[in-house]
């Protein structure tokens, strides 16, 4: 984060306790999200409630292949009850397609829902459909990692920069490890927003303002 000039990051992983420790250690840098793992069925929803009520966490991450899970609707009900931001992995597959997420968000219009990666970045159709879903559902927000500047620009023009947010999707041993130096991967992801040449206020919204507003943070 430091080499790339990133001040804060929303963090999540399948070990919620590990995330809790990191957030406790660096409260000014990390915003913890609880990881929703529907393989544990009702326990997965109870876990979300536990972190929301006991630790005051404000967001939930839904990972690969889980957007169609049987417990997604109970999760969304819980998110509505506690005012949680729900961020959902997306790609071009049927289990994570923006259409699927659009349908879920449409059923819970009070739950602010983020389509992570705007459809995945390897399929332009799913990127553009992410914007379509957001256009039709005001509670949908888009996150930019892997997305292309063309699709990000179109999203901003369609739904506004205040519903678009930057993300890197980096992790230990993840994409960042393929680069020569720390921060270069994040820098590349940041460039996907910077090369568009948006007005300053719009760029700032994507690079931090949008998520800060959603999480109640002074940017």
């Amino acid at each position: 984060m430091d080499p790339a000039g990133i001040d804060m990051a929303c963090v999540f992983g399948n070990d919620n306790e590990y995330v809790a420790e990191a957030a406790k250690k660096f409260p000014d840098r990390y915003i913890p999200f609880v990881y929703f793992d529907p393989r544990y069925e009702e326990v997965a929803v109870e876990t979300v409630e536990k972190y929301a009520t006991e630790l005051g966490w404000k967001g939930v991450k839904v990972g690969h292949q889980h957007a169609v899970a049987r417990f997604m609707y109970p999760l969304m009900e819980k998110a509505e009850e506690h005012g949680l931001l729900v961020v959902i992995h997306s790609d071009h597959s049927i289990r994570n397609h923006p259409y699927i997420i659009g349908d879920i968000a449409n059923s819970f219009p009070k739950v602010k829902t983020v389509i992570l990666h705007m459809g995945g970045g390897t399929c332009f159709d799913s990127e553009l459909l992410s914007t379509k879903m957001a256009e039709k559902n005001p509670n949908i927000y888009l996150e930019t990692c892997y997305s292309n500047p063309y699709a990000i620009k179109q999203a901003v023009e369609t739904i506004g920069a205040d519903r678009v947010m930057f993300g890197s999707d980096d992790s230990n041993g993840g994409y960042g490890s393929r680069f020569e130096k720390p921060g270069q991967y994040q820098d590349l992801m940041l460039d996907a927003v910077r090369v568009i040449g948006l007005p300053k206020d719009q760029e700032e919204a994507i690079l931090g303002g949008t998520i800060a507003n959603l999480m109640g943070i002074d940017a």
Binding site: P149, F179, E180, Y185, V195
Partner: peptide, 17 residues
């Protein structure tokens, strides 16, 4: 291009291992 931006591809080649 235009789906992808040339600057990002060039930068990726220049910074990846």
């Amino acid at each position: 291009s235009p789906q992808n931006h040339p600057a990002l591809g060039v930068k990726a080649i220049r910074t990846m291992k």
